[in-house]
Design a protein around this nucleic acid. Structure first.
Length: 374
DNA sequence: CATCCGTGGCG
DNA sequence: TCGCCAAGGAT
């Protein structure tokens, strides 16, 4: 079989055409073998041979939606410690859950999490269903999470397609179609890889591959278990995938925030509406956030207080970036006497106890800004 | 299908 | 500094 090239000797090396890596069908066994060696040890993962706890799988999946492993880890530990079972979580108050979630973002997840726990307890006797359709019907569970829980917790043969899997698959098959139009194609391609067993390991292997090797930038293809199967790798244009249309950035919005200090070391807080941005979370009083905010009229939106209030405009601003727009707030501060009562819908909170409140990070920035300049 | 919904880290 | 984007879901 060897080519007869004894005559030329060293010349052969120089003359021989560069060996072209032939793209071939990805072998799932190679990925699973890689996973057996390199699986990340994550707090919510069952140890080898142990049955995964559907509650833990679900809790971690909700937290991990659009959120990094590092950010989730401490929250997951606190939640699991405080509410070790779905019954415990279902019995908690929504406000306790929101306070425990504060800082993690996407607060609708926390409310859906709480609702979902109660539904599972009431409708499913406290046991997560393994059926995809039943999972999909639960609040906060979409296509991805339903498939992830089914596969990881129950080994149901399905492939959850998240951002990692989309990236891996789009490179593997060099999917030229742009997002989000490419999503159905990628789902189909991902499903075509599904092995006949180890659905949970396969799902997590794909995600680990995407998270640690097949990264968005500078993927470590030399360490990939599928180097030859990957079309993008063969072409050397890995970073061209997945192809995404450029998204336009949101327009700057501005507004004012009002921090009222009462002389007994408390500040005035109120709860936001239960829908929309930062829903149900706490905030300091403030103006609307608009594109044409007029700073000279900012104090019109200050909270109405019995006491005569001298507002002081604090120097500097608080900047924050939401998913779809950047925000810049000017901050006003005032001191009021101990006897001052809170306006309707607001309450006084001890400065020392602010950390226990359901305050999104934006509001923590505002409070820190005011406390620094007190 | 498009938009809304947080936050932190990283190149 | 800044844009990108991370285990998406709801509307």
């Amino acid at each position: 079989m060897d080519a007869p090239c004894a005559i030329v000797g060293a010349m052969t090396v120089a003359v021989r055409l560069p060996r072209r890596k032939k793209s071939r069908t990805p072998e799932v066994a190679e990925l699973l073998a890689w996973y057996d060696r390199h699986a990340r040890a994550l707090p919510w993962r069952a140890r080898r041979g142990e049955r995964p706890d559907p509650y833990r799988v679900w809790l971690s999946e909700i937290m991990l939606q659009q959120t990094t492993v590092k950010a989730v880890a401490p929250y997951y530990a606190r939640f699991l410690s405080r509410w070790p079972t779905i019954d415990a979580l279902a019995a908690a108050s929504l406000d306790d859950v929101l306070r425990a979630w504060a800082g993690l973002g996407y607060y609708a997840r926390a409310r859906n999490l709480h609702t979902c726990a109660k539904v599972v307890v009431e409708l499913h006797d406290g046991q997560f269903p393994s059926d995809m359709a039943a999972l999909r019907a639960l609040p906060g569970i979409g296509d991805y999470t339903a498939a992830a829980v089914a596969a990881i917790a129950f080994n149901v043969p399905t492939v959850p397609v998240d951002g990692n899997v989309e990236r891996v698959v789009s490179r593997l098959f060099a999917v030229e179609k742009e997002f989000p139009a490419a999503k159905p194609v990628i789902k189909q391609l991902a499903a075509s890889l599904l092995p006949s067993d180890r659905a949970g390991d396969f799902a997590q292997a794909l995600m680990d591959l995407g998270a640690t090797i097949c990264s968005p930038k500078r993927p470590a293809c030399a360490l990939c278990p599928w180097p030859d199967a990957c079309l993008a790798n063969a072409r050397g244009n890995q970073e061209m995938f997945p192809r995404k249309a450029p998204k336009r950035e949101g327009q700057l919005r501005c507004g004012a925030a009002f921090v009222v200090f009462r002389s007994d070391a408390r500040v005035l807080l109120r709860r936001r509406p239960d829908k929309g941005l930062l829903a149900s979370m706490m905030e300091v009083p403030g103006s609307e956030w608009t594109h044409d905010f007029d700073q000279s009229r900012a104090q019109r939106s200050a909270p109405r207080l019995r006491a005569k209030v001298q507002w002081q405009r604090l120097r500097g601003t608080v900047r924050h970036v939401f998913t779809h727009f950047p925000l810049e707030l000017v901050v006003f501060a005032a001191q009021v006497p101990r006897a001052t009562t809170a306006p309707k819908g607001a309450r006084w909170v001890k400065i020392d106890e602010l950390r226990d409140e359901a305050l999104p990070n934006l509001m923590r920035k505002v409070l820190a800004h005011a406390l620094d300049r007190r």
